[in-house]
Computed example of a mutant assay.
Amino acid sequence: MKKRFYFIAVLPVVALLVGTGFNAKTDYDFSSYSIEKSLYSTEGLELNFDVPTETEFVPVTTRKFNLFLGKSFLGFKEALGFKESRGDYHIVNNYGYMGKYQFSRSTLNMMGLKDTENFLYDARQQEAAFSAYTSFNKWVLRKDIKHYAGKTIGGVKVTESGILAAAHLAGPGNVKKFLRSSGENRFSDANGASIRYYMKKFSGYDTSHIVAKRKHKLVG
């Protein structure tokens, strides 16, 4: 009986607490919160927008730029590098020719580069090798350039850049033979590229500033 009495006595108190705890009319004081209303104001803003129709819409296009090197020495160098390897510094062909300009190990050794292991991973060394070898070829062929430039041999107009490109392909000795035999003594590499083809393809580039040098040693 006592337990029942206590339960009945406590029940009204619990009901009162629950009722007051969930009173929907409770007022909250927001005076302590400060909101800068100007940050959210739309006063002075144009809120009416016209959306173009499908026919009015003009798509944004990206302009494409092509680097034009023309007949400069840089154009000559990049054109020859592209022909040799598509400009790939790290390639080795089936015959062991290496890098962007496809040097043989024997040619690199001739220029003083004994260790060719890192050659494929050193673009600066490859560019230095090309410059040194081209200067050397110009020195070897200096008299032939002076004598034959402007003439037509083997159906091709001879130019200095064509001679230097052909020398890169076949060596200066074979270019001499081609020129001095009036194009009869021809050379083709393992891929079928010929002196005549290189002289025609790389004709007319400005290689006049290349200094002819007998010394062509590389450090490495």
Rank of each mutant, 00 (worst) to 15 (best):
19 G>L: 08
68 F>T: 13
14 V>R: 09
152 T>D: 04
141 L>D: 00
83 K>A: 06
179 L>Y: 14
62 T>K: 13
149 A>T: 15
67 L>M: 04
98 M>L: 11
63 R>C: 00
127 E>I: 01
145 I>A: 01
134 T>L: 03
5 F>Q: 01
57 F>P: 05
119 F>I: 07
177 K>N: 06
131 S>P: 08
3 K>E: 04
123 A>R: 12
23 N>D: 15
163 I>H: 02
200 K>N: 13
93 N>D: 09
199 M>C: 01
165 A>V: 01
55 T>G: 10
96 G>N: 05
129 A>I: 07
181 S>A: 07
191 N>Q: 11
90 H>A: 12
202 F>W: 06
219 V>L: 14
93 N>M: 02
106 S>C: 08
104 S>F: 03
25 K>P: 06
71 K>Y: 05
170 A>F: 13
96 G>T: 01
34 S>N: 13
99 G>V: 03
219 V>P: 09
71 K>R: 07
190 A>N: 02
86 R>G: 13
95 Y>C: 02
213 K>D: 06
89 Y>A: 11
133 Y>V: 11
35 I>E: 02
158 V>Q: 05
116 T>Q: 08
140 V>P: 00
35 I>P: 04
69 L>I: 00
37 K>R: 07
118 N>M: 11
25 K>C: 03
1 M>R: 11
51 V>D: 00
119 F>R: 01
180 R>I: 03
99 G>M: 08
207 T>G: 11
119 F>D: 01
27 D>K: 15
63 R>K: 14
116 T>G: 11
145 I>K: 04
97 Y>D: 12
142 R>C: 03
53 T>D: 06
153 I>H: 03
18 V>M: 13
49 F>S: 13
184 E>G: 08
158 V>I: 12
4 R>F: 05
42 T>P: 09
3 K>G: 10
156 V>S: 01
210 I>M: 01
205 Y>I: 05
176 K>S: 02
118 N>I: 14
4 R>A: 12
152 T>P: 08
61 T>K: 12
143 K>H: 09
216 H>N: 10
67 L>D: 08
56 E>L: 10
93 N>Q: 06
118 N>Y: 14
181 S>C: 05
90 H>D: 09
22 F>A: 11
140 V>A: 08
5 F>T: 05
98 M>C: 09
25 K>H: 14
99 G>D: 15
186 R>Q: 09
105 R>E: 07
144 D>K: 10
184 E>C: 05
213 K>Q: 08
34 S>M: 12
176 K>L: 11
156 V>N: 00
